[in-house]
Amino acid sequence: MKKRITEPVKKPAVWIGFGVLFTLVTPWYFPAGSWSPLFWGIPYWALIIIAVSLALSIFITWVVLCQWDTGADETEDER
């Protein structure tokens, strides 16, 4: 079966996903200067930013694994 050729840049889901995560990884949506409650000495908003950052890494993993296949390796094998 011929493999599907796909690039992340052409996938609306990739743009939407990165757009949403980029928006959330910038802390504009917290009350200015707020930090309470603290969890293990870390302000609540910082934990949310860390969680969104992790979500960004996981989303990158999904994009690399599922949305990127230019067939360059197959072309290489054929040579």
Partner: peptide, 16 residues
């Protein structure tokens, strides 16, 4: 932390 992740995100728009 996120700005280093952003670098990989940007890669995905041109590296493939």
């Amino acid at each position: 932390v996120p700005f280093f992740i952003m670098i990989i995100m940007v890669y995905l728009f041109f590296a493939p």
